[in-house]
Amino acid sequence: MQMHVAKRVEIIIEAPLERRLLDTISEAGVTGFTVLPVLGGSGRSGRWSREGQVSAAGGMVAVVCIVRPERVDKLLEAAFEVVERHIGVVSVTDCQVLRAERF
C-alpha cells in the first residue's frame, strides 16, 4: 500500500488554554486536529491528575495534528505563540499516512 511521509505534532497544554490553541492553529490553516483527554502525569510543575478535578484549571489536554512536512513550521510558530509562557510539551515525530490528500 502506498504510504506518504507526514509530521505528527503533539501539544500537551493546560486545559484553560485549549480553545486559544485550537483557534490559533486553525487561523494558521491547520484545520485537522484531535483533542485527547490526558489522565495525569508529572513534570517540572509537579504531578497532576484529572481524577475528580473540581476545576479544569489543573488539567491538561493533548492536541494532535498530522500535517505535511512543509506545513510543520507554520504550525509550530502558531502553537508557540500560545504555549510560550505556559506549562506544556510540544513534540514532533515523523509518521506515515495512507491518504496524503487529506493532510
Binding site: 493546560e14 484553560p16 488554554l17 486559544r20 473540581v54 476545576s55 479544569a56 484549571a57 489543573g58 505556559h86
Partner: peptide, 11 residues
C-alpha cells in the same frame, strides 16, 4: 476560589 480564579491565572 479554586475554580474561576485558577483558570484565569493560568491564562
Amino acid at each position: 476560589s479554586y475554580i474561576a480564579v485558577p483558570a484565569a491565572m493560568r491564562v
